[in-house]
């Protein structure tokens, strides 16, 4: 806990969570932009006046990455970069692993992808995800339901 352990530096906190954050961002925006999204989110968080009072840094940093990923996705500044990378990005994930499902995951919204990641990779419950992302449990259930609908179709095609 940051307040309880003031000796822990931001660099140490970052080092502790960086790998998990980049993995999370990779699922949200792809491998090409993941590090960039995490860097932006971390710098934004560390320069925020509220950071010193945050008690659950892991959750807070994941929220920041999720927000940054969504900003990133709508940000036109990087749109051209993304577009020019699309042909590369589309083959950068191993396609042999359930290609239909992989494509379906890639089509999910950032928030849907975030909830799928936390539910299926981190094994979090709806309430845990809600706390983690700072949204209601109802929203989590809705995002997961929509994501599952999309994925279920892909899973059926995958067989």
């Amino acid at each position: 806990m940051r307040l309880d352990s003031p000796a822990v530096t931001d660099a140490e906190i970052y080092a502790e969570h960086a790998t998990a954050l980049v993995r999370f961002a990779t699922v949200l925006v792809g491998p090409n932009d993941a590090a960039d999204v995490v860097s932006s989110a971390v710098l934004r968080v560390l320069s925020s006046p509220g950071w010193t009072s945050v008690t659950n840094q892991r959750s807070y940093l994941h929220q920041a990455v999720a927000n940054e990923a969504r900003n990133f996705r709508r940000g036109e500044t990087r749109r051209h970069d993304r577009e020019t990378r699309v042909p590369t990005a589309s083959v950068s994930y191993p396609r042999e692993v359930h290609p239909e499902v992989r494509a379906a995951v890639a089509r999910l919204s950032v928030r849907q992808r975030a909830t799928v990641y936390l539910a299926y990779w981190e094994d979090m419950t709806d309430h845990m995800i809600a706390d983690y992302l700072g949204i209601s449990a109802g929203s989590v259930r809705r995002h997961l339901a929509r994501a599952r609908n999309h994925l279920r179709r892909a899973l059926n095609e995958d067989r």
Binding site: T26, P31, A35, P94, Y120, L155
Partner: peptide, 25 residues
């Protein structure tokens, strides 16, 4: 189905780049 989703997530995560070096944070 859950396993298939986990495998897909694992394949995506496998592509994660190394974190930015913020040793000079």
């Amino acid at each position: 189905d859950k396993q298939a989703i986990r495998e897909v997530l694992a394949s995506m995560i496998a592509e994660a780049p190394p974190p930015t070096d913020f040793s000079n944070l």
